[in-house]
Amino acid sequence: MGIEERELERNVLITSVEKLVNWGRKFSVWPLTFGLACCALEFIVAGSATVDMARFGSEVARPSPRQADLMLVAGTLTKKMAPMVKRIYEQMAEPKWVIAFGSCACTGGIFRSYNVVQGVDQIIPVDVYVPGCPPRPESFLAALIKLQKKIERETVRDRKLISAP
């Protein structure tokens, strides 16, 4: 049970608590160190000094799904790889978000093919889509800011809905 649910039971300050929690969450979206194909290189650059995603609170990329909040699916998802990606997603602790980064992750991209999943939203829920082949690292920042806006608007009930099995 999260702090916001406890507060909800006591029926106090629900609006402000939500705001406070969301404010905290939105500036500490830690991505998972994870990449599938060429787009992953753009994600690596997003952590470098020139682009520096740490300025927006995505301080470090975590190598363990247990410590990560954001799954950045960067690259081509093949059907053979799909079970592993799904498993990693399920291993991440709530709250968690997903950005589909690049055409391949959004729709399958240039691979209209028998071995590529035509969009990762077929296996995991996606919050923000970033088109491009590959998108520039700046697009990652844009997506991150979009995601922060989304987190800002989240309510306790939204979260519950997302985490339902």
């Binding site: 079970p83 209209r112 028998y114 071995n115 035509q118």
Partner: peptide
């Protein structure tokens, strides 16, 4: 074999 495969239009499901 078609380049898209036989199951292209069906939704993709993962079995863990």
């Amino acid at each position: 074999f078609p380049a898209e495969g036989y199951d292209f239009d069906k939704p993709f499901e993962v079995k863990l």
